[in-house]
Amino acid sequence: MNYRAPVLAALCALLLTGCGAHSSASGHGAASGHGPAAVSVALPAEPGPAAESTSYNDADVMFLQMLIPYNTQGVEIAKLAESRGVSGEVKKLTASIVGTHNEEIVTAAGWLKGWNKPMTAPVDEHKHHGGMPGLTADELAKVKGAPDEGFEEKLVNTLIAHHDDAVQMARAASADGSNPEVKGLARKVESLRSTQVKVMLKVLGQ
């Protein structure tokens, strides 16, 4: 991913959030054994409508700010199925994941925009609220580079892990959030991901 660094660095000037966070996170990465991962976040050209309720708390905002990059990565993982030899069932499931993840990004972006909040959060806030899980660039590259034999299992297990992380975030938002629409979205995320995990476990014969 090194080739992207100059571009991303340039864009830091445009987006005040995330940039300082990136440099301060590098130290953590070294300590944790993870690389200083960077995830590019694609923001919708056209965010959804603002939320009806203007009452919200930090947990609501945090959930939406985590959902956007997390779903962006989820889409990237799910799209790997498009060009690889996987079963029709997995192709169908990953296509559905891409669709619903993108819908959620549009919704979250619209609500954040309506509240005049940044689309992503500084890393210090993540620390307070349980942090931002996800694959590092290296881990994602290993899934991408996996040989055909066993690729489907690797992809499905990676998606199960990614979904399971989202379930944790959604449960925290359901418990700590205050905005009824965000809490509704969190419940939807938890329920949808949990159902899809069950389907994926079945694909794996578990």
Binding site: G29, S32, P44, P49, M132
Partner: peptide, 27 residues
């Protein structure tokens, strides 16, 4: 509205942000 724009979300991305992933979550 969501359904209408969903398919073009990523391809028409207007901005990029960088975010740290796992390191912040590490416990």
């Amino acid at each position: 509205k969501v359904a209408a724009v969903a398919t073009s979300v990523i391809s028409t991305a207007s901005l990029l942000a960088i975010l740290p992933t796992s390191p912040a979550m590490a416990h």
